[in-house]
Simulated assay, not measured.
Amino acid sequence: MHKFYFPKTLRLLNSKEFSFVFQKPQRAYSSQINIFGRANKLKYPRIGLTIAKKYVKLAHERNRVKRLIREYFRLNQHKLPSMDFIVIAKKEIVYLDNFTILKKLEKLWQRHFQSF
């Protein structure tokens, strides 16, 4: 049975970890969300989030998007390959409802499965 924890070890926390992913990323993107990924030497995936105030102006909207992305990652971390992921939200994401955001994330992460 899997445990669906989301400890600090599953997060990208500093600029060095983010830079590692941005050096040679595998990209999956839509008009609302970009997901950059790069294989890591750990035995588990990690995630970092970037949601700019410039694109998502209201704090409650940024928090909603972050919550959805983290929850999707937490529930599906055992299916994901051992990669570091950076999820970048674009301007149009505020117009999507929660269900649509989760479907977009599913579709984008499937592209990382195929390329790994």
Rank of each mutant, 00 (worst) to 15 (best):
N14A: 08
N40T: 04
K3N: 15
K54C: 04
D97Q: 14
F4A: 11
T100V: 14
T50Y: 10
A28V: 01
F73P: 02
S19Y: 06
A89D: 02
Y55T: 05
Y72P: 01
M1P: 09
S82D: 15
I69H: 01
R46G: 06
L42A: 13
I35D: 00
E106H: 04
L108A: 01
K41M: 09
Y72R: 02
I51M: 06
L58R: 15
F73A: 02
F99C: 13
S31G: 05
L49F: 10
K57N: 13
F6S: 03
G37Y: 01
E61H: 14
K24T: 09
V56G: 10
G48Q: 10
K54T: 09
V21T: 05
V56S: 06
V65G: 01
I101V: 11
S115G: 10
F36D: 01
P45R: 09
T9L: 15
K90D: 08
E61A: 09
Y55C: 07
D84T: 07
V65H: 02
F22E: 11
H60G: 09
F113P: 03
S115Y: 12
F20C: 08
K43Y: 04
L68H: 05
T50S: 14
E106Q: 10
P45I: 06
I88S: 04
L105R: 00
L96H: 02
